[in-house]
Design a protein around this nucleic acid. Structure first.
Lengths: 110, 110
DNA sequence: TTTTTTGGAAACCGTTTGGTTTCATTTATA
DNA sequence: TATAAATGAAACCAAACGGTTTCCAAAAAA
């Protein structure tokens, strides 16, 4: 659990980490506040947060005895772009133009 | 390696599997053709393909002695949509207010 | 000053992952 | 028919993963 350069795809593969991301996207929390949302132990949550920091999705900032965890999810752009590369597989009426226009975030389906 | 219902996030976390996806998105290939693109052994590639089939990203079809592997990447829509949930982190056009209003307040516990 | 809060760190553990090699089976081909 | 090709399946392995408990140190609060 000490990979120097962590891959963002690997980081988001764990559902607990995705939930941590969801939590921190709302607001910054200290470590215990994050851990309170889960049934797993506080050290387990700390390990997940370390993984998230290793790929840049979370930054931590110590103030006093507290460690504040903040989401910085620019790295998810890479994930979105990668998945959208294959948009034609779920977007039936594809022509090149529409595919180009759909690059803009106005997807309202579902 | 026999998870009945495989998570698509976990499936795409491996770079080799993402490369297999890239290959099969172009055209259907049999197992050996896929394996030829990698330095790892053929059984290793077969295991990756099995994982991809377990989450529906790849379908296989046996004809004669060959196993043809075909991409079916509709499942990546889920990934795209999940990542786009946090688009405000890399898209300047969306401001903090929209981010706040778009929040889904149904995440307590677990 | 004593106590509580916060969290880092280490040791440990069972399971999963990603890989290998080997062997058997089925299907084509020479 | 004998041989080659394509793959499945099994056994095995080291490392990574996700988790735990325990202990320690620093900061804040009583």
């Amino acid at each position: 659990m000490n990979q120097a350069r962590r891959d963002v795809f690997q980081a988001i593969s764990d559902p607990t980490r995705r939930e941590i991301i969801h939590l921190l996207a709302r607001r910054t929390l200290n470590l215990n506040n994050v851990a309170d949302h889960f049934t797993i132990s506080r050290p387990a949550v700390a390990k997940h947060i370390r993984i998230l920091t290793e790929c840049g999705l979370v930054t931590v900032q110590t103030r006093g005895r507290e460690t504040f965890c903040q989401a910085d999810l620019k790295g998810l752009k890479q994930v979105s772009e990668w998945a959208n590369t294959y948009q034609e597989f779920w977007n039936d009426k594809l022509d090149a133009l529409e595919r180009f226009l759909d690059e803009d975030p106005s997807d309202e389906n579902r």
